[in-house]
Design a binder for these strands. Structure first.
Lengths: 112, 112
DNA sequence: GCCCTCTGTCAGCTGAGTCTGACAGGGGAG
DNA sequence: CTCCCCTGTCAGACTCAGCTGACAGAGGGC
């Protein structure tokens, strides 16, 4: 996934996932250290439900992975980890990605 | 602007500007050839007001430049042009950008 | 005079994204 | 039993981006 040229839709999803201050901060925090959700919520000072939503988006975009760990004492804790990636963005990449968007070309509207 | 590491806020703006199929298509079309607005609207088959909005966002993000040209016959035509840029995105860049977000650090809420 | 092309802005609708409080449940420690 | 910490999910409110049709104005060609 790192270095491959993504499809237009994937690019849009990826950029949308990253285009949020909260998510950027979450990613940064998680990249630095593997933490569990509640601790992360405390670090970033945000409500847990909100954090859950953002984590879902990041996970859907493949930027983080969640792992529910059941400790030896029985209590379960969800650890979150960042997934390394690399994307190079320039006009060429944009032009390339724009070619394969679902419903990209003009007159591509038939099954609607 | 190309190659410089943008601030967190700038990064978010840039990504937000790019995270749209329409804007990707507009950028691609404009990167290929310098065109004027109405012609572009015809190419991409979208309403002009909508195109205007997207162009404003792209222009605000510094990805395109508009130039209102008054032809020798007096009619004015607005030409749009893509601005070359390069951004490398990875975990390090994210972590770096997350540091300088307006209101990033915890306990940075004083003037509100 | 009428018709055409272009630019730009406006009010208004709709839907998605965001954020919050509250809830249900699992399990350990005092 | 009571308190605490953890994981999830939910409905509701609220904001904003996206999108549309309509309008005003400038100018050329017939």
């Amino acid at each position: 996934m790192s270095g491959t040229s993504p499809t237009g839709d994937e690019l849009v999803s990826l950029l949308a996932a990253l285009a949020s201050p909260h998510r950027l901060r979450i990613l940064a925090a998680v990249a630095r250290q593997r933490t569990y959700v509640s601790e992360l919520a405390r670090q970033l000072q945000m409500n847990r439900p909100l954090l859950y939503m953002h984590l879902q988006k990041l996970e859907a975009a493949g930027l983080v992975t969640g792992e529910l760990v059941t400790a030896p004492d029985g209590s379960s804790v969800k650890y979150v980890q960042a997934v390394p990636f690399t994307v190079s963005l320039d006009l060429d990449a944009i032009a390339l990605a724009a070619q394969n968007l679902t419903g990209s070309g003009p007159a591509a509207e038939q099954e609607k």
